[in-house]
Every structure is written in C-alpha cells, then in structure tokens.
Design a protein around this nucleic acid. Structure first.
Ligand SMILES: [Zn+2]
Ligand SMILES: [Zn+2]
Ligand SMILES: [Zn+2]
Ligand SMILES: [Zn+2]
Lengths: 130, 130
DNA sequence: TTTAGATTGTTATAATATAACACTATGTAA
DNA sequence: TTACATAGTGTTATATTATAACAATCTAAA
C-alpha cells in the first residue's frame, strides 16, 4: 500500500505532470512545462524529483535520465524496480512480477550477500515496434 | 570468449586506464588522466568509451555515470550485465552468475516478451562496509 | 510559542555529453 | 595501383544534466 505523503505544492505540480505523461519525462522538459506554474529554476525541479523518488511516487530510469510515475504498490518501500524499455520508441513500462522480485530479492552473490535494493532495466522492442 | 578487436591508439589508452583502475572511472576523470598522452578533448574520450562499450570491453554503470572493464567472458555479445554497488564506498563488482543470467534471459513479461539485453544494478553494502 | 526540520527561491556553477566539420588512417576491390 | 567506403581523429563550440551555497519561509511537534 502506498503510504500517503502529503506533497508540497511543487512536489504535487511536478508529480501530476509526470503522472499524466505517457512517457518518461526529463528534468528540463519538466522544468519547461511547469514554468507557467511558477517553478522557474532547475533546482526546484530536482528537489521535488529527489523527494518524489525517495518516497517512491516516481522512479528514475537511469539509462535515460528520465522519470516515470510508479503504479506498482510494492516498490515504494523496497526501492526494488524493474522496467522494460523499447529501443525504438523509448516506451518504458514498469514490470511488477512477483516471481521476478522474489527471485532478485533472494538472489545471493558469490559472497552470499542478498540485496533488497536493485534496479533492472530490460531492453528490447515493444509490441508496436516489433 | 572475447572476440579480439584491435583497439586503436585512443581506445587502447583509455581501456588500459579503466582496466587497471580498482574502481569505476568517470569520463572527465579519464580525460584528466590521459591528457599527458595527447587526448585533450571530452569527445575523444566519449568516442573511445562508446566503442569500448559497444564491443563489450567495458560497461557503463548507469546509476553512477562511470565505466568499468569487463572481466566476464559471456557478456560481450549479450549486453546482459549485472553489478553490485556498495552504497558507502561505491565499490562495484560485476556479477557473473549463470543462474541469474539464465533466469533473466528466460524471464517473460506479461506480454510474453523475453529480453536478451538488460542491465541490473544491485545496491547494498560490500564486505568491508558491513 | 518555541524550535527543529523541511521546503522554497535564487544565482551561480559543476559535471556529463553531443553537434558539426574538416581531416586522416585503413581495408577492400576494381 | 587507384578508387572507394568505413572508421577514427582533432578541434571548437554547445547542449544537457545536476549540484553548491545561502537566505527566507513554512510546518509540525514539544
Ligand atoms: Zn514502482
Ligand atoms: Zn516501441
Ligand atoms: Zn562484463
Ligand atoms: Zn563498501
């Protein structure tokens, strides 16, 4: 269950924008889009993004330097995320597979170490682009 | 088996530097270190990095914008990589686990799609930092 | 109400990465 | 050999992504 964080004004503005975007948004594209709402500087955007990532409302797609809203109730706490990324149209989908997350959470490296935090990005072609 | 690519001068200089580094190197740190060898501009570094990544001699750690040499003979072709990253000392280790790579290569998303390319980054504390 | 912590607004700057263009080396094929 | 294609180089400039520093303001709890 998503714990309810009361978002501040900037956080809410930026979350709403990302949440209704059909594709991952980049920080400066976000900035451009919220300037009419009074958010004028990169730092205002990055601070909101940092917080939204921290509380799990959005995720950063590391290979793309872009952000998407989370629609998976389980990753908020764990910071254990998986995505598929289309190499043609750049569509990104968050993967929520119990099997996958269990496998990764139980994976032990050669020192026997387990990891509760991970980020997995799959690359391929989406349905439309195949 | 690593296919032998004959590296060009710049590629070799930069690969050697990364290969002997005990930790991932960032592009501008590489640039600083190779300036005495005649590589003076960021683009010369990025071009060599791009090629080295393409042929699998190095990998990019996406969450850190840094590069490490590959010591795993199987990931060159597949571009299927996994790493563990220490959140304190930033030590990065490439994971080569047959089980993990088989699991991920056979993972099907909810559309039944499989992915031969992926990048997985685990986060935790290394032996020394635990 | 006091106070600590989080958030904001702002300017400046750092760090990461690519565009564009002219030139050079290298391999392949007529 | 000569022509051609491909890859790599050197260079300048610029684009993109992200953080430092500091003062002001808001918010929630003691
Ligand atoms: Zn999520
Ligand atoms: Zn696509
Ligand atoms: Zn490797
Ligand atoms: Zn460590």
């Amino acid at each position: 269950m998503h714990k309810e964080h009361t978002l501040t004004k900037n956080q809410q503005i930026i979350f709403d924008l990302i949440d209704k975007s059909p594709e991952p948004m980049k920080a400066y594209s976000i900035l451009f889009n919220v300037q009419k709402k009074g958010i004028k500087a990169p730092l205002q955007v990055y601070r909101a993004l940092d917080k939204l990532v921290e509380i799990g409302k959005i995720h950063k797609i590391e290979s793309r330097n872009a952000f998407i809203a989370c629609h998976n109730s389980s990753c908020q706490v764990s910071k254990a995320t998986a995505f598929s990324i289309c190499e043609i149209c750049e569509k990104v989908t968050e993967i929520s597979s119990t099997g996958l997350s269990k496998y990764l959470a139980n994976f032990k490296d050669k020192d026997g170490m387990k990891y509760s935090k991970y980020n997995l990005e799959f690359f391929g072609l989406c349905k439309k682009c195949r």
